[in-house]
Design a protein around this nucleic acid. Sequence first.
DNA 1: CGCCACTCCATGCACAGTCATTGAACCTCG
DNA 2: CGAGGTTCAATGACTGTGCATGGAGTGGCG
Lengths: 129, 129
Amino acid sequence: MAAKTAGARLEERWRDILSAHARTMCEIDRALHPHGLGASDFEVLDMLATAAPEEGEQCRVQNLVGRVHLSQSALSRLIARLEKDGLVARSVCVEDRRGVWVALTSRGRDLHAEVLPLQRAALARTLGA
Amino acid sequence: MAAKTAGARLEERWRDILSAHARTMCEIDRALHPHGLGASDFEVLDMLATAAPEEGEQCRVQNLVGRVHLSQSALSRLIARLEKDGLVARSVCVEDRRGVWVALTSRGRDLHAEVLPLQRAALARTLGA
DNA sequence: CGCCACTCCATGCACAGTCATTGAACCTCG
DNA sequence: CGAGGTTCAATGACTGTGCATGGAGTGGCG
């Protein structure tokens, strides 16, 4: 029965994760949608805001792929969207011309600052309770 | 500083959930894909296998929407796919002709039994470690 | 009885995500 | 040097999901 309960416990834990994920994701989307952002968009913006506060460490995109829960192609498209909206800027890396730097624009930085509390509030609502 | 650490703790918790979700989801997909199923498909199959072991309680679909992490429309299409693959059968509810009963076919039941251990193993790999 | 509001499931449409592939740049080794 | 293999990001083709809507069915009330 030990194996049985272990399996059941995993199953239960998985359900918890699933539901917490779904509720929180949805709540974040709700909170951010009025500002034209989705949860993934915010994740990347937040990444850029916190992981590179002063200056660029690496050739960005490659750097981001590992840290974000998205495939390389999805990230590429997402960044393209953000650029189109004027929130980030892409520039080729001079040292390795395959690479691309991504940086927040001032507009991107402002928007991030604006929505950060909303995201935090959403987290508090779904995870904090 | 109390507020600050509370925010950071939430953030951290959220990251944990996000990464656990992504890793596990991916692992389940990997494990089940050879059998023609995705994680959502399994979730519904499992629901049907466990929540209705003997007989139908309600008009199903309506019943499932609340328990599964999918929108009503996504569920509708998913069930259509499963039906096309011969894993479930739909039938109108005689009492309330708007409703639709969904039930596992024997083929569906077999497949569920076949892949259940694979899903459990995936959970153990990503959550149990 | 007839109308209206409501519930249930399916569908049109738009979009974000994945996988596979491409094309450019880089690096290593002969 | 230059050929072959590798890495980086972007793109094409496809799938799955959500939102909004539609059409059928139900129930209540005048």
